[in-house]
Protein backbone atom coordinates (compact mmCIF):
# COMPACT_ATOMS: atom_id res chain seq x y z
CA UNK A 1 0.00 0.00 0.00
CA UNK A 2 1.03 3.56 -0.72
CA UNK A 3 0.91 4.62 2.89
CA UNK A 4 3.58 2.16 3.91
CA UNK A 5 6.20 4.30 2.20
CA UNK A 6 8.29 6.21 4.68
CA UNK A 7 9.70 9.51 3.60
CA UNK A 8 13.12 10.69 4.69
CA UNK A 9 14.17 7.20 5.71
CA UNK A 10 14.91 8.17 9.28
CA UNK A 11 15.72 5.38 11.74
CA UNK A 12 15.28 6.64 15.27
CA UNK A 13 18.10 5.64 17.59
CA UNK A 14 20.25 6.68 20.50
CA UNK A 15 23.73 6.24 19.08
CA UNK A 16 26.48 8.85 19.41
CA UNK A 17 25.82 9.85 15.82
CA UNK A 18 22.09 10.16 16.35
CA UNK A 19 22.77 12.47 19.26
CA UNK A 20 25.07 14.83 17.40
CA UNK A 21 23.75 18.28 16.69
CA UNK A 22 22.02 18.21 13.28
CA UNK A 23 23.86 21.36 12.23
CA UNK A 24 27.14 19.64 12.97
CA UNK A 25 26.07 16.59 11.03
CA UNK A 26 25.23 18.78 8.09
CA UNK A 27 28.65 20.45 8.27
CA UNK A 28 30.38 17.09 8.67
CA UNK A 29 28.59 15.65 5.68
CA UNK A 30 29.70 18.64 3.64
CA UNK A 31 33.34 18.17 4.71
CA UNK A 32 33.07 14.48 3.87
CA UNK A 33 31.82 15.22 0.38
CA UNK A 34 34.61 17.77 -0.15
CA UNK A 35 37.17 15.18 0.99
CA UNK A 36 35.76 12.64 -1.47
CA UNK A 37 36.24 15.01 -4.35
CA UNK A 38 39.61 16.30 -3.23
CA UNK A 39 41.04 12.75 -2.99
CA UNK A 40 42.86 11.92 -6.22
CA UNK A 41 44.38 8.56 -5.27
CA UNK A 42 43.52 5.24 -3.66
CA UNK A 43 45.06 6.21 -0.35
CA UNK A 44 42.83 9.21 0.14
CA UNK A 45 39.74 7.32 -0.88
CA UNK A 46 40.54 4.48 1.51
CA UNK A 47 40.63 7.01 4.33
CA UNK A 48 37.16 8.11 3.27
CA UNK A 49 35.90 4.54 3.08
CA UNK A 50 37.29 3.83 6.52
CA UNK A 51 35.64 6.82 8.17
CA UNK A 52 32.37 6.01 6.39
CA UNK A 53 32.44 2.45 7.70
CA UNK A 54 33.23 3.73 11.17
CA UNK A 55 30.23 6.04 10.95
CA UNK A 56 27.89 3.18 10.13
CA UNK A 57 29.35 1.01 12.88
CA UNK A 58 28.86 3.71 15.51
CA UNK A 59 25.34 4.57 14.34
CA UNK A 60 24.22 0.94 14.50
CA UNK A 61 22.68 1.23 11.03
CA UNK A 62 23.09 -1.91 8.99
CA UNK A 63 25.32 -1.69 5.93
CA UNK A 64 22.61 -3.47 3.98
CA UNK A 65 20.79 -0.11 4.07
CA UNK A 66 23.59 1.26 1.88
CA UNK A 67 22.93 -1.49 -0.61
CA UNK A 68 19.28 -0.49 -0.61
CA UNK A 69 19.98 3.17 -1.22
CA UNK A 70 22.45 2.32 -3.98
CA UNK A 71 19.98 0.14 -5.83
CA UNK A 72 18.10 2.86 -7.69
CA UNK A 73 21.29 4.48 -8.99
CA UNK A 74 23.08 1.22 -9.85
CA UNK A 75 22.59 1.71 -13.60
CA UNK A 76 24.23 5.13 -13.41
CA UNK A 77 27.19 3.74 -11.48
CA UNK A 78 27.71 0.92 -13.97
CA UNK A 79 27.32 3.29 -16.90
CA UNK A 80 29.95 5.76 -15.62
CA UNK A 81 32.30 2.91 -14.76
CA UNK A 82 32.05 1.48 -18.26
CA UNK A 83 32.52 4.88 -19.87
CA UNK A 84 35.60 5.49 -17.78
CA UNK A 85 36.99 2.14 -18.72
CA UNK A 86 36.69 2.53 -22.45
CA UNK A 87 37.32 6.20 -22.97
CA UNK A 88 40.54 6.63 -21.04
CA UNK A 89 43.69 6.19 -23.08
CA UNK A 90 46.48 3.94 -21.90
CA UNK A 91 47.69 0.38 -21.80
CA UNK A 92 44.98 -1.82 -23.32
CA UNK A 93 43.51 -4.79 -21.41
CA UNK A 94 41.60 -5.98 -24.40
CA UNK A 95 40.52 -4.55 -27.70
CA UNK A 96 37.40 -5.40 -29.61
CA UNK A 97 36.49 -3.64 -32.83
CA UNK A 98 36.65 0.05 -31.87
CA UNK A 99 36.25 -0.57 -28.17
CA UNK A 100 39.40 -0.50 -26.11
CA UNK A 101 39.47 -1.01 -22.37
CA UNK A 102 42.57 0.25 -20.60
CA UNK A 103 44.27 -0.31 -17.23
CA UNK A 104 44.20 3.40 -16.60
CA UNK A 105 40.50 3.40 -17.41
CA UNK A 106 39.85 0.50 -15.07
CA UNK A 107 41.70 2.28 -12.26
CA UNK A 108 39.68 5.40 -12.80
CA UNK A 109 36.45 3.44 -12.93
CA UNK A 110 37.19 1.82 -9.60
CA UNK A 111 37.96 5.20 -8.03
CA UNK A 112 34.78 6.59 -9.48
CA UNK A 113 32.66 3.79 -8.10
CA UNK A 114 34.20 4.10 -4.64
CA UNK A 115 33.58 7.82 -4.70
CA UNK A 116 29.93 7.52 -5.70
CA UNK A 117 29.26 4.75 -3.19
CA UNK A 118 30.84 6.80 -0.40
CA UNK A 119 28.91 9.87 -1.47
CA UNK A 120 25.58 8.04 -1.28
CA UNK A 121 26.48 6.17 1.89
CA UNK A 122 27.67 9.34 3.62
CA UNK A 123 24.68 11.48 2.82
CA UNK A 124 22.32 8.57 3.59
CA UNK A 125 23.89 8.28 7.01
CA UNK A 126 22.84 11.88 7.62
CA UNK A 127 19.18 11.21 6.78
CA UNK A 128 19.17 7.80 8.49
CA UNK A 129 20.27 9.31 11.79
CA UNK A 130 18.59 12.72 11.65
CA UNK A 131 14.83 13.28 11.67
CA UNK A 132 13.55 15.42 8.79
CA UNK A 133 12.38 18.03 11.26
CA UNK A 134 15.81 18.25 12.88
CA UNK A 135 17.35 18.63 9.45
CA UNK A 136 14.94 21.39 8.52
CA UNK A 137 15.77 23.05 11.78
CA UNK A 138 19.49 22.75 11.14
CA UNK A 139 19.13 24.24 7.68
CA UNK A 140 17.14 27.16 9.05
CA UNK A 141 19.67 27.91 11.76
CA UNK A 142 22.80 27.39 9.65
CA UNK A 143 21.49 29.72 7.00
CA UNK A 144 20.19 32.22 9.54
CA UNK A 145 22.85 34.82 8.67
CA UNK A 146 21.46 34.91 5.13
CA UNK A 147 18.31 36.56 6.49
CA UNK A 148 20.29 39.78 6.48
CA UNK A 149 20.43 39.53 2.72
CA UNK A 150 16.65 39.16 2.57
CA UNK A 151 16.77 35.43 1.98
CA UNK A 152 13.45 33.94 3.18
CA UNK A 153 15.23 31.32 5.30
CA UNK A 154 12.46 30.92 7.88
CA UNK A 155 9.75 30.74 5.24
CA UNK A 156 11.60 28.06 3.30
CA UNK A 157 12.12 26.01 6.43
CA UNK A 158 8.44 26.37 7.37
CA UNK A 159 7.46 25.22 3.90
CA UNK A 160 9.70 22.20 4.25
CA UNK A 161 8.16 21.35 7.61
CA UNK A 162 4.63 21.61 6.28
CA UNK A 163 5.51 19.55 3.22
CA UNK A 164 6.97 16.83 5.45
CA UNK A 165 3.92 16.96 7.67
CA UNK A 166 1.46 16.59 4.78
CA UNK A 167 3.21 13.97 2.68
CA UNK A 168 1.69 11.02 4.60
CA UNK A 169 -1.73 12.72 4.65
CA UNK A 170 -1.70 13.27 0.90
CA UNK A 171 -0.47 9.77 0.17
CA UNK A 172 -3.34 8.38 2.21
CA UNK A 173 -5.74 10.68 0.44
CA UNK A 174 -4.48 9.61 -3.00
CA UNK A 175 -5.06 6.03 -1.96
CA UNK A 176 -8.63 6.81 -0.97
CA UNK A 177 -9.47 8.77 -4.11
CA UNK A 178 -8.02 6.03 -6.30
CA UNK A 179 -10.19 3.45 -4.57
CA UNK A 180 -13.26 5.64 -4.88
CA UNK A 181 -12.76 6.16 -8.61
CA UNK A 182 -12.03 2.49 -9.17
CA UNK A 183 -15.29 1.76 -7.40
CA UNK A 184 -16.95 3.89 -10.07
CA UNK A 185 -15.32 1.72 -12.71
CA UNK A 186 -12.29 3.88 -13.50
CA UNK A 187 -9.80 1.74 -15.35
CA UNK A 188 -6.22 2.62 -14.52
CA UNK A 189 -4.47 -0.54 -15.47
CA UNK A 190 -5.08 -0.95 -19.16
CA UNK A 191 -5.08 1.01 -22.40
CA UNK A 192 -2.55 3.15 -24.20
CA UNK A 193 -0.30 5.68 -22.50
CA UNK A 194 -2.77 8.41 -23.44
CA UNK A 195 -5.64 6.44 -21.91
CA UNK A 196 -3.70 6.01 -18.73
CA UNK A 197 -2.75 9.66 -18.58
CA UNK A 198 -6.40 10.55 -19.03
CA UNK A 199 -7.35 8.11 -16.29
CA UNK A 200 -5.29 10.23 -13.90
CA UNK A 201 -7.59 13.24 -14.25
CA UNK A 202 -10.27 11.87 -11.89
CA UNK A 203 -7.54 11.38 -9.31
CA UNK A 204 -5.49 14.54 -9.76
CA UNK A 205 -8.37 17.01 -9.79
CA UNK A 206 -9.87 15.88 -6.47
CA UNK A 207 -6.36 15.75 -5.03
CA UNK A 208 -5.65 19.35 -6.06
CA UNK A 209 -9.01 20.56 -4.85
CA UNK A 210 -8.50 18.94 -1.51
CA UNK A 211 -4.92 20.18 -1.19
CA UNK A 212 -6.10 23.74 -1.71
CA UNK A 213 -8.83 23.26 0.86
CA UNK A 214 -6.31 21.85 3.31
CA UNK A 215 -3.89 24.69 2.64
CA UNK A 216 -6.66 27.18 3.28
CA UNK A 217 -7.70 25.58 6.55
CA UNK A 218 -4.12 25.15 7.70
CA UNK A 219 -3.32 28.80 7.02
CA UNK A 220 -6.32 29.83 9.09
CA UNK A 221 -5.41 27.48 11.92
CA UNK A 222 -1.83 28.82 11.89
CA UNK A 223 -3.07 32.40 12.09
CA UNK A 224 -5.32 31.47 14.97
CA UNK A 225 -2.25 30.18 16.73
CA UNK A 226 -0.63 33.58 16.38
CA UNK A 227 1.68 32.73 13.48
CA UNK A 228 3.05 35.93 11.97
CA UNK A 229 6.22 34.89 10.19
CA UNK A 230 9.65 34.27 11.67
CA UNK A 231 9.98 37.60 13.41
CA UNK A 232 10.10 37.42 17.19
CA UNK A 233 9.67 33.68 17.07
CA UNK A 234 11.43 31.51 19.64
CA UNK A 235 11.99 27.76 19.48
CA UNK A 236 11.26 25.15 22.09
CA UNK A 237 14.20 23.01 21.11
CA UNK A 238 17.45 24.87 21.40
CA UNK A 239 20.32 23.42 19.47
CA UNK A 240 23.52 23.38 21.47
CA UNK A 241 26.91 22.09 20.42
CA UNK A 242 28.40 19.72 22.96
CA UNK A 243 31.89 18.27 23.39
CA UNK A 244 30.99 15.33 21.19
CA UNK A 245 30.11 17.64 18.33
CA UNK A 246 33.55 19.23 18.39
CA UNK A 247 35.28 15.87 18.65
CA UNK A 248 33.30 14.67 15.64
CA UNK A 249 34.15 17.83 13.74
CA UNK A 250 37.82 17.40 14.60
CA UNK A 251 37.75 13.85 13.25
CA UNK A 252 36.26 14.98 9.97
CA UNK A 253 38.77 17.85 9.65
CA UNK A 254 41.54 15.31 10.24
CA UNK A 255 40.11 13.09 7.53
CA UNK A 256 40.20 16.01 5.13
CA UNK A 257 43.77 16.85 6.18
CA UNK A 258 44.79 13.22 5.72
CA UNK A 259 43.26 13.14 2.26
CA UNK A 260 45.14 16.28 1.30
CA UNK A 261 48.36 14.80 2.71
CA UNK A 262 47.81 11.64 0.62
CA UNK A 263 47.42 13.81 -2.44
CA UNK A 264 50.81 15.35 -1.74
CA UNK A 265 52.58 12.06 -1.00
CA UNK A 266 51.05 9.67 -3.51
CA UNK A 267 50.95 10.31 -7.24
CA UNK A 268 47.67 11.53 -8.64
CA UNK A 269 45.81 8.92 -10.62
CA UNK A 270 44.31 11.35 -13.07
Amino acid sequence: MLKDITIGQYFPGESAIHRLDPRMKLIMTTIYIVALFVANNVGGLLVCVAIGLAGYLISGISLSMVKKSLKPIMPIIIFTAVLNMIFVDGKPIFEFWIIKATYEGLQLAVLMVIRIVCLIAGSSLLTYTTSPIALTDAVERLFDPLKKFNMPVHELAMMMTIALRFIPTLIEETDKIMSAQKARGADMESGTIIDRARALIPILIPLFVSSFRRADELALAMECRCYHGGEGRTRMKQLKYTGNDFVALAVLVMVLALVIAMNLILPSMY
Partner: peptide
Protein backbone atom coordinates in the same frame (compact mmCIF):
# COMPACT_ATOMS: atom_id res chain seq x y z
CA UNK B 1 -18.28 -6.75 -10.05
CA UNK B 2 -17.49 -3.12 -9.37
CA UNK B 3 -20.60 -2.26 -11.37
CA UNK B 4 -22.70 -4.91 -9.64
CA UNK B 5 -21.70 -3.72 -6.20
CA UNK B 6 -21.71 0.05 -5.79
CA UNK B 7 -19.55 1.42 -3.00
CA UNK B 8 -20.05 4.91 -1.60
CA UNK B 9 -16.98 5.83 0.44
CA UNK B 10 -16.88 8.02 3.50
CA UNK B 11 -16.88 11.71 2.54
CA UNK B 12 -17.57 10.78 -1.10
CA UNK B 13 -17.77 14.45 -2.11
CA UNK B 14 -13.96 14.49 -2.19
CA UNK B 15 -14.00 12.34 -5.31
CA UNK B 16 -15.95 14.82 -7.47
CA UNK B 17 -13.92 16.08 -10.41
Amino acid sequence: FRFMVGLVFQYPEYQLF
